[in-house]
Design a protein around this nucleic acid. Structure first.
Lengths: 205, 205, 205, 205
DNA sequence: TATGAATGAGGCTTCATTCAT
DNA sequence: TATGAATGAAGCCTCATTCAT
């Protein structure tokens, strides 16, 4: 399931993520991506059967970036508030590190099903949604645990809380600008501030 | 500045918002919108000079929906926590009421500058950004006021807090499904839960 | 045949000639002409049944401008060289005076039959060609007279000579720029130079 | 600068020249040209980025046809009258040989700047004007030489004389009909008559 | 594996024209 | 007489995709 990617495939995915981010998923053409790679589109079509498949591959990689970063810090034995804080902080840092991929995911969250997806593309999309749900469940579990032990307030639907926290943690996708002078210290400060807010937003009064 | 729209223009905007939401800003074609209207695209081009201008008009309307709902409940004399709660609750309710428009705004937040915008389109986009900044400043002011009087915690940059809260309040855009059975009670429950979380996320520990 | 035009019609023709000249016969739209008039296209359609009819009316007026200027100076009793010189000089001066109209004629000389002309439009075009042939015959007659009496050289086909001379006299259409500082003296100098060249080009060596 | 064209590009240019000539620069559609080629418009857009670029390429080729024919007969050592006669005769013969291309040039002389030219299109147009000016200078030089040595009359501006002669030599573009029975003898007769007229038009009385 | 030519469907836009008022 | 809304046909151009090499 988590097969490693060839160098060529990985290069193509980076270029695709960059172009999808910069120009938009729909506006970026296969030619744009090929130009960014310094080759022709034939190369892309040898590795990915269609534009939709390429897009899904980018989104899948984005999901796996955060999963692989956050999963190790999940600790069912730790106090829920501490655990949620660690997970949140790690999530934000990873999102900032691999921003283009997550900007692409955002665009497709907003958008909708393609007009006529291939079977293969549909399979990829199903796989993506499955992994996204699994990742979200990591956050849902810790929140439920906190509600059960009284750490977190019991307000409305826990799934709404989870979705809202994940959205809050993704907020930098909207305003963070990739620059050369983005110091690691700045990223950490942002991650800490958002993790604090995330925990506070569900903490019992 | 807030000129009223002719009936024909307003109908076109509603249809455009619906199609942009359903099919995506890029995928939705002018023909799709015309078909939804039951007329020809000539009608659309008689009122809007380009697809980009139509999109900007939808986004501008979205910004004005929330502004006109929230501005009246801003009360500089009220305690910051109460004020922020009222504003948040009102914001969420208005977003749920006019969801298609805000889904469109989300998509264009994610996306990027069009490849070659007209001068006129650029003007519309500038106007939109100006009104969006003005709206955001309403939230920034109350947050600053709360930090100053000790109600809210002083964590990092207040602008990051403001942006994160607005993103959190917009979270239903990602998961809320328009249905016939969406009771007003459900909307109010969601709005209360999110307003609670928003205030808690910045409240002093 | 030479019915006088109403003021409104004449204004429309001037605007049309200006737009056709500036933007090109095909590129200039009825809206462009209406905008130049400061009204809407309805006004144009009240006076001219179609764009083709409007174009033909402009061309017809151009033909009549030169005819009405040159016809009076045709003098079958004068020496052919003198007569041709007077006609040529007068032609050039009139062309410079009513340049927009003649630029339009040039464009349609170059271009070709419209794809599907109306009967009415075809009638207008036939009328135009008839008047153009009649005007050309004035020049052909004096050239033939000069060849007969030995003033002019007998080289090849007299009709080729006539066509070439008319083209030479119209040459300023290609390079003359309408400006505020085009003095009458300048126009006269150009007219004299071209009339000299025209006569010399056929004069017996 | 004078790169050779691929076979495919050259075929496309021939078809374009023919269609532009037959139907007019504006009326001829890319589909018309593709139909004339027996292929799809995709093929044309693979080689030329826009209709304007295609038009400019045709015009550039026209300019180079006459330049490459006339440049070899320019002889600064020859008597001006002889030199001008040879150049004129050669020009006319070449124009008759490659008539479609020159009819296209005529149309665009008459017409005007496109409404919103691309940078690339503007570059092509500048290149064209540069080569046209250079070609015209060949004629201007010999005329000046004739005026200096007394062969040619000194009437007005030499540049007006040059422009008028070139226009006179291009006159057949207006009336010459491409037919199967256009004998070479006929072309030569026309070229001789026009060259005679051209030289006579500037000869000292 | 990669390229360059070619296709064909579809989208945006323009515009002459008509019509109700 | 003039306007403003609306239509429908057509044109330019883009682009994902295929194929021969």
């Amino acid at each position: 399931m988590l097969e490693t990617l060839s160098t060529s495939k990985s290069q193509i995915l980076d270029a695709a993520a960059h172009c999808f981010m910069t120009l938009g998923c729909d506006s970026a053409s296969i030619d744009d991506i090929a130009a960014h790679l310094g080759s022709t589109k034939g190369r892309i079509y040898h590795h990915f059967p269609s534009k939709g498949a390429l897009l899904s591959a980018v989104q899948l990689r984005a999901a796996r970036f955060t999963y692989q970063a956050v999963a190790p810090v999940v600790d069912p034995a730790a106090p829920p508030a501490d655990c949620l804080h660690d997970m949140s902080r790690t999530h934000v840092l990873e999102v900032l590190r691999t921003l283009p991929y997550h900007k692409v995911v955002l665009q497709s969250y907003a958008s909708v099903v393609p007009k006529s997806p291939t079977d293969y593309e549909q399979t990829l999309r199903d796989q993506l949604h499955k992994e996204q749900r699994h990742y979200a469940s990591l956050f849902l579990e810790v929140i439920k645990r906190g509600i059960d032990d009284g750490t977190f307030a019991h307000r409305g639907d826990p799934r709404v809380a989870m979705a809202s926290i994940l959205t809050l943690l993704n907020a930098p996708i909207f305003w963070y600008q990739l620059r050369d002078d983005n110091s690691e210290a700045f990223n950490i400060a942002v991650a800490d501030q958002l993790a604090d807010m995330a925990v506070a937003s569900v903490q019992a009064g």
